[in-house]
């Protein structure tokens, strides 16, 4: 079974500090890492391949230096790495990203399953997986927490929902996006690391994959960011003092005086 895992490079921390005087964000020494959710996608891809045979390929769209990160995935069992890198792709929203990745996948060809992370730590939209499936004209299931069965014909998996899970069956090829419950990613092995060091990442441009530049990058992105700001939490905190008994009593009073109903949760406040 041939599996393509989509991975995105993200800044290692998504912490944003505010400079109070200038009202701007302070960011220093930002290291780039593989989107944490994508490490579960990689692990799942490798596990399926170990069971069924075939090949695993990681695919990413990003700046040239992403190639080094992709090499790391070869140390944990991925067979090949492909990077779509071209200024034409820059500024893509999730639609343009889905399009570019779909062209990359068609270029790689001969795939049975595409695995994405649940969402990227920076953009946080969770839209690329489903968007990509649609561009490829194949079915998808999001938030997969377990694969119950997979063979040449179909996959049956558990999709996580707010109050449990659905069991979904769909024919291959298909796209799944995975949540962290699905597995525990392995650590690299020494031999894997050696192999990764020597590996070559295939870098492709928009032209190489036959992508229409009108549909890529900023040009192909219907959404536009017009403003950004750092949220301020201006809560008024009240510390409740006293001996534990007093504290509990005072707090209960306060909540109850906010018409906090203790018996019927639908009627609160």
């Amino acid at each position: 079974m041939n599996i393509i895992v989509c991975v995105k490079q993200v800044p290692a921390t998504n912490e944003v500090k505010m400079n109070k005087e200038t009202n701007t964000i302070i960011r220093e020494g930002i290291e780039a890492i593989i989107n944490p959710f994508d490490t579960y996608a990689i692990e799942e891809g490798v596990r399926i391949k170990e069971k069924t045979g075939g090949k695993t390929t990681v695919l990413s769209m990003g700046i040239p230096s992403v190639a080094d990160l992709l090499k790391e995935t070869l140390a944990v069992g991925i067979d090949e790495a492909v990077l779509l890198s071209d200024r034409t792709f820059a500024g893509a929203d999730s639609l343009a990203t889905s399009y570019a990745l779909s062209k990359g996948i068609e270029h790689i060809g001969d795939y049975d399953l595409i695995v994405c992370g649940k969402q990227a730590m920076d953009g946080d939209t969770a839209q690329v997986g489903p968007g990509l499936a649609e561009k490829l004209g194949i079915p998808h299931t999001t938030y997969v927490r377990k694969i119950e069965e997979i063979n040449d014909k179909y996959i049956r998996c558990q999709r996580m929902t707010e109050d449990g899970y659905d069991i979904i069956e769909m024919p291959l090829p298909a796209v799944i996006t995975v949540v962290k419950e699905i597995n525990e990613p392995r650590l690299p092995s020494l031999k894997g690391m050696m192999r990764a060091k020597r590996a070559v990442v295939t870098v492709l441009t928009a032209k190489d994959i036959g992508a229409d530049s009108d549909l890529c990058g900023l040009k192909g992105s219907p959404t536009q960011v017009v403003k950004t700001f750092v949220p301020v939490h201006d809560v008024q905190s009240e510390m409740i003092e006293g001996e534990p008994e007093e504290q509990a009593e005072k707090l209960a009073k306060k909540l109850l005086s906010m018409q906090f109903n203790t018996s019927d949760s639908t009627e609160v406040i």
Binding site: D93, S94, L95, S98, G123, D124, T125, A126, Q127, V128, G129, P130, G131, L132, A133, E134, K135, H140, T141, T142, Y143, R159, M160, T161, E162, S221, P222, T223
Partner: peptide
């Protein structure tokens, strides 16, 4: 922006080629 909404919305947006803002 529920489990279902976050799956359905991008699939629709991708099919009709329009923008989608998340969450």
């Amino acid at each position: 922006a529920t489990a279902y909404g976050r799956s359905l919305a991008p699939k629709i947006a991708s099919r009709i080629n329009t923008g989608l803002t998340a969450d």
